[in-house]
Amino acid sequence: MFKQARSTIAAFALALSIGTAFAAVDVNTASSDALRGVKGIGPAKAKAILDERQAHGPFKDANDLSTRVKGLGGKTVQRLEAEGLTIGAAPKTAAAAPGNAAPPGAANSAVATPVSASTSAKPVVVKK
């Protein structure tokens, strides 16, 4: 009984650590606490990133981040990206363009599908 409980607790702890290890942190929207959650960013680097972002706006890419923040070279930024740091929002897909329908199965889509008025369409009546 004790071994099974210990195994369950160990599996739960492993699942939690994996879930937090791969959480993406966007350098353009993250708070100081979120930035410090990325392995390799301490309080001083988080402050430097936030100060630079506030003074000169969002970072365009990894090169922009490494150029603007003192102490963050190209290799360091690559390592931070491997640890979950992202730069900029996720790229927009064609589905998000106006007039395009959402992909099948997309939940909570903000894209509206145009409805055309048809004189031949008849209402559907559902009987219980």
Results as ranks from 00 to 15, higher is better:
G57N: 03
V77I: 04
G71K: 01
T113Q: 10
A21V: 08
G74F: 06
G105P: 07
S118N: 15
V27Y: 01
I9F: 08
A24M: 12
Q54G: 12
A96T: 15
T67E: 13
R6W: 03
A5L: 14
G57K: 09
A34H: 02
Q54C: 00
L72W: 04
L80K: 06
G42T: 01
A82I: 03
G74M: 11
P123F: 07
P91Y: 08
Q54W: 00
I18L: 14
L14W: 06
T93A: 08
L14T: 02
K39S: 12
A107M: 13
S32C: 02
I87W: 04
A89Y: 01
A95C: 09
G88M: 06
F12K: 13
Q78C: 09
S31M: 03
G57F: 01
K75V: 09
S118R: 14
A112N: 11
R79A: 13
L80W: 03
G84P: 08
T86D: 00
T86F: 05
E52Y: 00
G74A: 15
F2A: 12
L16N: 09
L72P: 05
A94D: 13
V125D: 05
L72R: 04
L35K: 03
G74E: 15
E81Y: 03
L72M: 02
G40P: 07
N63Q: 15
P103E: 02
P104L: 11
P43W: 07
E52D: 08
D33K: 14
K60H: 10
S31C: 05
G99S: 01
T119E: 12
S109F: 06
T67Y: 00
K128D: 12
G71L: 00
P114V: 06
R79D: 10
P103V: 06
P91M: 10
T20E: 10
R79I: 06
D33E: 15
